[in-house]
Design a protein around this nucleic acid. Structure first.
Length: 224
DNA sequence: GCGACAG
DNA sequence: ATCTTGTCGC
C-alpha cells in the first residue's frame, strides 16, 4: 500500500511536470467535469466524469466507477484518495474531452499539487481546479457581483496561486486554480462561463449527479 | 502549544 | 463527503 511519505515524494516528482500556460487546441469542443461521491454507511466511493459539448453544455458522454476507498482523507494528500476511481472512470470513457474541470484545487495547495494537477499530469491533459472552499492561501473578499475576482495569495503574498471567483451575485465564491496546461486567467474565464446558472460549473454539477446515480445503482445491485 | 485543514 | 425540511431573509 501507498504510505504517506511515498505519496509526498510522488507529489514532488509530478509537480515538476506542471505547465501553467495554455497548451490546448482551441476552440474547445468537449469539456468534462470530474467528481467523486462518498457513501455514508460503507467505504464506497464513486468517481464520475461527464463530458459536455463546450458550446451547448449538452451531455456528450459519461463514465463512472464505484470501488472501495484505498487511501484516508488527509488534507494535502486528498488526490491520492480520489484519483483511483477517477482513473477507472476515465478508462471507461469513450469520448475524451479537451479539458477537465475538477472538484478540488489545482496548484492552490501547500505543495502546489492538488487533485486537478495530479489528474492533469497523470493523463497529460489540460485541467482546472475549482474548489468550493479554500485549502491554502489568503484572499480578500471579491466584489459582490458575478464575475468579481480576488487573487489567492501564498508565501507572504508573494505568489498568486489562484482566484476567488464570484460566479453569481452575492453568493460565496469558488476557488479557481491551474491544474495543468491552462493559465489562471483562462481557467477563471472558463469556470465563469460554465457557471451560468449556479454557483458551481455545470460540468461538476452533471458529474456529481451521475456519480450519485452510479452509487445508488451499485448498492442496489450489491446489497450489504 | 494552538488553530487550520480541498472532499 | 455525509447527516437534510422547512424556513428565514433578500
Amino acid at each position: 500500500m501507498l504510505t504517506e511519505p511515498d505519496a509526498v515524494a510522488e507529489q514532488e516528482k509530478l509537480r515538476q511536470q506542471i505547465i501553467t500556460e495554455n497548451r490546448f487546441r482551441q476552440p474547445i469542443r468537449y469539456i468534462a467535469g470530474a467528481d467523486v461521491e462518498y457513501d455514508k454507511d460503507t467505504n464506497l466511493i464513486a468517481g464520475a466524469i461527464a463530458v459536455l459539448h463546450y458550446d451547448t453544455l449538452e451531455l456528450a458522454a459519461v463514465a463512472t466507477h464505484v470501488m472501495e476507498v484505498t487511501f484516508p482523507y488527509i488534507p494535502g494528500l486528498f488526490s491520492f484518495r480520489e484519483m483511483p476511481p477517477l482513473l477507472a472512470a476515465w478508462e471507461k470513457l469513450t469520448l475524451k474531452p479537451d479539458l477537465i474541470i475538477c472538484d478540488g484545487h489545482g496548484i492552490a495547495h501547500p505543495r502546489r499539487f492538488g487533485l486537478a494537477s495530479h489528474l492533469g499530469t497523470i493523463l497529460d491533459l489540460p485541467t482546472i481546479g475549482c474548489g468550493k472552499t479554500r485549502l491554502y492561501g489568503t484572499f480578500a473578499e471579491p466584489g459582490a457581483r458575478r464575475g468579481s475576482i480576488s487573487p489567492l495569495l501564498a508565501e507572504d503574498d508573494q505568489q498568486v496561486i489562484g482566484n476567488a471567483l464570484r460566479t453569481q451575485d452575492n453568493i460565496n465564491p469558488v476557488f479557481v486554480s491551474t491544474g495543468h496546461k491552462v493559465s489562471l486567467d483562462t481557467a477563471t474565464a472558463i469556470v465563469l462561463e460554465m457557471a451560468r446558472l449556479y454557483r458551481l460549473p455545470e460540468t461538476t454539477r452533471i458529474a456529481d449527479h451521475h456519480g450519485r446515480l452510479a452509487m445508488e445503482a451499485y448498492k442496489e445491485k450489491n446489497p450489504l
